[in-house]
Amino acid sequence: MNIFPTQYSLLSAKALKDVIEQKYGFHEMSCRLLIHNVSDTYILENETSRYIFKIYRDAHRKPDEIKGELELLNVLRERGASVSHPLKDLEGEEIQAFNAAEGTRYGVLFSYADGEVVADMTDGQLERVGTEMAKIHQITANLELSHPRGEFNLNTMLTLPMKTIKPAFKGLDKEYADLGEVVNLVFKKMEQMDLASFGYGYCHYDFLPKNFHFQEDGNITFFDFDFAGKGHLVNDLASFYVHYFLQVLFNRLTQEEADRAFQVFLASYRKVRPLSSAEVNAIPYFGFAWWIFYFKFHYDHFEDWSNFFFGPKFIKERVGWLKKWMDWYIVK
């Protein structure tokens, strides 16, 4: 029987459980879908153990890119960073292949990050985030992986996204023009920075609280390095500040409270790794670029992600957020 062309399948949790048990020597595991998103995440558990199994999509990550992510995680773990890491099967393989409806999909079993997400962090937790992020950057600075990962630069963060998302602004010409003016301003400001003096290496590029868990004893584990790529390390500090922008935007914190919390984080980071005042001053600009980069991501993966919220309402709201970011943080 011919299979009708498919762009995004959903693999059976029951069938995955059987395959994973056989390949990894597990017994009496349960398996359920945790997230159906840009990739699919399943949780496997029994009375004593828990694991995460991630199924990638070819449209999002090619095999070499997956190998790059796993290589990075293995380096981080070997050098003492607290990260969720890939696990090998009984034959020593980290990547599994599945003949899905749309073609081959690849899966990886990861250690489980114990603990939970904490959005309203204490000073002690902020200090831990700063220390551990700095440790990760100490490892990734000037690191060169043998497998390719994307690069975060002015083109990939600003120029290319603006070209890509233009068709989505049909009928929203003013919004696109307004956004374009701001992007040009940020581009010129960043172009004038002494970027060669900034720390450079592999960034996580999504350092939001949803991607690290705190345990009761205060330990922290980072996960979801799906977007990890080469770039200025200040990108990670900027993505962490996005959390505080959203906290202020939704009236969960005052700007003063958000800034104080971020300063606690920065002070802790600086105890482990040097950070110039120029890099700190650049955080708002790299944060703006972060938003533009992910604007492109939302557009690119609208269909495959079942991203039902991407449309005129989403675009207008997001442009409004970006205007607030400019008004609050960037000197024109």
Results as ranks from 00 to 15, higher is better:
Thr6Pro: 00
Tyr8Trp: 06
Tyr8Leu: 03
Leu10Val: 13
Leu11His: 02
Val19Leu: 04
Leu33Cys: 05
Asn37Glu: 11
Asp40Gly: 01
Ile43Ser: 02
Tyr51Phe: 10
Lys54Leu: 06
Lys54Thr: 03
Pro63Ser: 07
Asp64Ser: 10
Lys67Arg: 13
Glu71Ala: 12
Leu72Thr: 09
Leu73Ile: 13
Val75Trp: 07
Val75Ile: 15
Glu78Lys: 09
Gly80Ala: 09
Ser82Tyr: 01
Ser84Leu: 06
His85Tyr: 15
Asp89Glu: 11
Glu93Val: 12
Glu94Thr: 13
Glu94His: 05
Ala97Asp: 14
Ala113Gly: 12
Thr122Tyr: 13
Gly124Ile: 02
Lys135Thr: 11
Lys135Phe: 12
Ile139Leu: 09
Glu144Gly: 00
Arg149Ala: 12
Arg149Met: 12
Thr156Trp: 03
Met162His: 13
Thr164Glu: 11
Lys170Gln: 15
Leu179Pro: 00
Ser197Lys: 15
Tyr202Glu: 04
Pro209Gly: 07
Phe212Asp: 03
Glu216Asn: 09
Gly218Asn: 07
Asp236Trp: 04
Tyr241Gln: 09
Leu246His: 05
Glu257Leu: 06
Glu257Met: 07
Ala261Glu: 07
Phe262Met: 03
Ser268Cys: 05
Tyr269Pro: 02
Lys271Met: 03
Phe286Gln: 01
Phe286Cys: 02
Ile292Pro: 05
Phe295Met: 15
Lys296His: 07
Tyr299Met: 02
Phe302Thr: 10
Gly311Thr: 01
Pro312Gln: 06
Pro312Arg: 05
Phe314Tyr: 14
Arg318Tyr: 10
Arg318Asn: 08
Leu322Pro: 01
Asp327Tyr: 08
Trp328Thr: 05
